[in-house]
Structures are given as structure tokens and as C-alpha cells.
Simulated scan of single mutants.
Amino acid sequence: MNCKIYKSLNCFFILILSYLIFEVESFTPAGRLAHSSVLVVNRIYFFGGVDDQSNDLSEVFYLDLSKPFDMATPSWKDMSATSAIPFRSAFATTASTNNDNNPIIYLIGGLTRDQNNVDTFISLIHAFNPKSKKWNTPIIKGKEPERRRNIQAVVDDVGKIYVFGGKTDNSLGSEIIQLFNDIAIFNTKDLNWSQGPIVNAPLKRDLYTATH
């Protein structure tokens, strides 16, 4: 075979292969609401949500902030193939800790549904390890707060997660609609629930924001 033709064909196949690899690896998340997100080091992780067809989602993906990127083509990375939430999640909240250099993301509250839209509630908290890319349901001591959604969480410097208020309704198995104004505290070091003070607590509410 002519050397020039061989080189041309070689370059052609390399270009085609590069195109195919780019197409496989590229990912753009669909629009959604009611998802959860949290920053861990230089990645923003996103969990679940509700799509434009009112389907609850179990997707997990992140935005890589370790290097500059074009706003038109953010560096999204999809983890759903191996690390999807064990259920469809929406209207939950997330908080992360890094005890002993072991980052853990906690997904708290919200809807927990299977592929047939059936409630699959097991625990108010599920844990995701970004290093191992695995989920687990920690065994937690103390009295678990009543199920709730439309909440936010903050974590302090010693690994305690604070969740204020929220709402329960028939989507969470409650026969009545109820708002809360309590503070549920989850200690990630000893895996224990406790209650915060209720004296002079703000009015009952959901769909708020919280910042530490």
C-alpha cells in the first residue's frame, strides 16, 4: 500500500475513534427541579430531582471545578451507571462531612420511590462515598425525626448536620399535611439523632434556604 494512503487512512480512523469516544463520554443533564446538590472539595454533586415529565429521578452526576471550563459546555460527569441512588429521590437535602479524610455525602429526607412510583422508605438518611462510589444505609441511634421533605441541611465543624422544619403529606405516607419548626440534629461521628432547642423557634415552614 502506498505510504501516503496508509497514513491518510490511519489519521482518518484516529479522527473517527476520537469522535466516537467524545460522543460516548459527553453528558448533559436534563432540566429538573427538586434535586439536591453539595460541594465536595472541587466537585459539585447532584442527586435525583423531578424531570419535565414529572418523573422522579435517581441520577447522580457532578460538575468538575478543578479546572476552567466553557460555560456553554460544562465538564459534567455522569455516575448513574454505577452509582445511581438506590431509589428515585426528590425534595430531599444533602450535606457532606470529611471525618478522618473520608468524605461522605448524606442524602436526607424527601421522596423515596421505586421504578413503579411506589414508596420504598427505609431510612431518613442514606450515605454516599465519593471515593468508593458506593451507597449504604447507616444504622443510626436515637429517635429518628418524622419523615419530611422540602428541607435544607447545614453541617458544622465537628460533623453535626442540622435540619430545620420541612413538610410531610400523603407523598410520605402521612394522612395529613403538616409543617415543622423543629431542629433535627444528626451527629455523623457517632451516628446518632438528637433534637435541637424549640424555645423561640421560627414559624413552621418548608421550601426555605439555609447557610452555615
Rank of each mutant, 00 (worst) to 15 (best):
S89T: 05
F87R: 04
S89L: 05
N102H: 11
R113D: 08
P103Q: 11
N101G: 12
A92H: 15
A95Y: 07
G109F: 12
I108M: 14
D100H: 08
N102R: 08
L107C: 14
N98F: 00
N99C: 03
F87V: 08
G110N: 10
L107M: 15
S83E: 12
T97R: 02
A92C: 13
A95F: 02
I85G: 04
R113L: 15
Y106T: 06
A95S: 12
A95E: 03
S89K: 00
N99A: 10
L107Y: 14
L111H: 04
N99W: 08
F87Q: 06
A95D: 05
F91G: 00
N99P: 00
A84P: 01
N102Y: 05
T94I: 06
T93V: 07
T112D: 13
I108S: 13
D100S: 08
T94M: 06
F87K: 02
F91Y: 11
T82E: 03
L107W: 14
I105P: 07
T94W: 09
A90G: 10
A84M: 10
A90V: 00
N101I: 06
I104G: 05
N102C: 03
F91W: 11
N99V: 14
F87M: 04
N102G: 00
G110V: 04
Y106I: 06
A90M: 04
P103K: 13
D100E: 11
S83Y: 10
T97M: 07
N101S: 13
Y106N: 09
I105N: 07
N98L: 00
Y106A: 07
G110A: 10
A92T: 10
T97D: 08
T112S: 15
A92I: 02
T97V: 14
R88T: 02
P103W: 13
L111F: 02
R113F: 11
R113W: 09
S96M: 12
I85W: 05
I104K: 14
A84L: 03
F87H: 08
S83G: 09
A90Y: 03
L111A: 02
T94F: 04
A90N: 03
P103F: 12
I108V: 13
T97S: 13
G109H: 09
A92Y: 09
I108R: 15
R113C: 05
P103D: 10
I105V: 12
T94G: 01
N102P: 00
T93W: 10
P86R: 01
T97P: 07
P86L: 01
G110E: 07
